[in-house]
Design a protein around this nucleic acid. Structure first.
Length: 473
RNA sequence: GCGCCCAUCGUCUAGCGGUCCAGGACGUUGCCCUUUCACGGCAAAAACAGGGGUUCGAGUCCCCUUGGGCGCGCCA
């Protein structure tokens, strides 16, 4: 099937998978899945100095966590150097490339001069038509592309529209370094060609590269894949994403307790829209996704919207799934010394029982875990400042008087405890809140929690009465 | 410096010449619900960067200005 859509995600493993990369991967994945095609993964590790195995692992891990699967095995660019070299030689033989013996010092001079004269800093083509016979001794040459010097290179970008560059502003780029290794420009073109990529979707920062890569395609007489350059994601201040505001590894989002589905949903709406629709199931996302509705302006990353979406996803999740997500994410979440390091079976059971009340109140898994802290707390409970205040300003009396009534209850259900507590409130002419708060403080050590009768039920008779007794005086 | 890209509420965006005194979402504010906190419901404030054109008519097309961004390596 020659018409099959093939996209690729091609990160360079010099760092973690950041949020922009994750969105690029998502768009490639959606485009491929929408078309019933493939998304391939290529690790661009030709910079052997800066590429690390740890970064590769982090990227693969991040993609998996996000739920973005790729087709086939990941391709490592570094292992294809022979093929890249072969293409460079091919270009050389065809007279479309040439040896250049300019030294780094010469190049520096050239650029400085051009800049001083208000021209773009570029190679001046001094070896373009010179015979290698004139080569200075002892210098290993690079191979440069003999790029067109007149006319223009035009890209019909699927997102940016028609973009044109005057060829005189583009210099003869290096294809093969003097040590015989291929440059990124060459490697990308050859790999995309060999992998059968039909659609390139990547960050806007590659737009200028597109022109140079098109020149390589044209020299080779290869068909240029369709291209789509998507706008970058900026920090909240509009500037480039930095560590301070959001240029975090994808693992950091997991550690903050975001759900992969929520992050995907947030990310897809950053730069892409489908009318007024904000929430998409995975299926709907694949179904609706298109390049035509990707905007052309950069978007700012907004944590509060992500958080809101995440809360929505948590509320919509099944209780069992949340327990599973929490168990899985537990080790990644920030530490809290009053919480167990891991969740054993009985804790998971309690968690499941409490989940309906808990999930309404959490925007992240971290908050969910925090909200569940009272389940795991050991007697006598540590009270936070507000809880202590509630108990110390008369609350203990209510707890003390309520204790025997609750202890006498025949059955321990939400309905039964509620009836008892309401009866007490009525008899003493108090609002329910005035008795519920002391109970909450004694039962959870905090001033906020799920509904108090749920708390009583989930904690169970023995533990509840124990905690109340602890605070009765 | 040169090249390229971008420009609607604080933020993400809808809008593809008239249906826009500009719609949705997040956030903000107020009210309601209520045992706390949330959730939920209702309501409000909040934008077409500026200036020229084109046109009967411009947020929508063109130009300029301003403001942002990206790129300019024998990095990727």
């Amino acid at each position: 099937m020659p018409d099959e859509v093939v996209t690729r995600f091609a990160p360079s493993p010099t760092g973690f998978l950041h949020i922009g990369g994750a969105r690029t991967a998502l768009f490639n994945w959606l485009f491929a899945r929408h078309a019933g095609g493939k998304m391939l993964l290529r690790i661009e590790d030709t910079d052997r100095e800066r590429s690390t195995d740890a970064a590769i692992a982090a990227i693969l891990d991040g993609l998996k966590w996000l739920g973005l699967d790729w087709d086939g095995e990941a391709i490592y660019q570094s292992r294809r150097a022979d093929r890249h070299r072969e293409v460079a030689e091919q270009l050389l033989a065809a007279g479309k490339a040439y040896y250049c013996y300019a030294s780094p010092e010469e190049l520096d001079e050239m650029r400085a001069k051009a800049r001083a004269e208000g021209r773009p800093p570029r190679y001046d083509g001094r070896w373009r038509d010179r015979s290698p016979a004139e080569a200075p001794p002892g210098i290993k040459p690079v191979i440069r592309l003999k790029a067109p010097q007149t006319g223009e290179t035009v890209l019909e970008d699927k997102v940016q529209g028609r973009v044109a560059w005057a060829n005189e502003n583009l210099d003869d780029l290096v294809l093969l370094r003097s040590d015989g290794t291929p440059t990124y420009m060459l490697a990308v073109v050859v790999d995309d060609r060999d992998m059968g990529i039909t659609q390139i979707i990547r960050g806007d920062d590659h737009l200028t590269n597109a022109a140079r890569q098109m020149q390589i395609y044209q020299a080779l007489d290869w068909q240029v894949p369709a291209m789509a350059h998507i706008p970058l994601i900026h920090g909240t201040d509009g500037a480039k994403l930095s560590k301070r505001h959001g240029a975090l590894g994808i693992d950091a989002y997991r550690a903050m307790g975001y759900l992969p589905a929520a992050l995907r949903n947030y990310l897809v709406r950053l730069g892409w829209s489908h009318g007024d629709t904000e929430f998409f199931t995975t299926e709907a996302m694949i179904e609706s996704f298109d390049l035509a509705h990707i905007g052309r302006s950069p978007a700012r990353f907004d944590f509060s919207k992500l958080e809101n979406m995440n809360g929505h996803y948590i509320r919509a999740s099944r209780e069992e799934d949340l327990v599973a997500a929490l168990v899985e994410t537990w080790p990644h979440l920030p530490d809290r010394d009053d919480l167990p390091k891991a969740l054993d079976a009985s804790m998971q059971k309690k968690l499941l029982a409490a989940m309906p009340g808990l999930k309404e109140r959490a925007k992240t898994l971290a908050e969910l875990r925090d909200g569940a802290a009272f389940l795991f707390a050991e007697r006598p409970l540590a009270l936070d400042a507000q809880a202590a205040d509630i108990l110390n300003s008369g609350g203990r009396d209510h707890v003390a008087r309520l204790l025997p009534r609750l202890a006498d209850l025949r059955e321990w259900t939400s309905a039964a405890t509620e009836a008892a507590v309401r009866a007490y409130a009525e008899e003493t002419n108090l609002k329910l809140g005035q008795v519920a708060q002391p109970l909450r403080a004694a039962l959870t050590g905090r001033a906020t929690s799920p509904g108090i009768f749920d708390v009583l039920r989930v904690l169970g008779r023995e533990e509840s009465l124990g905690r109340l007794a602890d605070q009765a005086h």
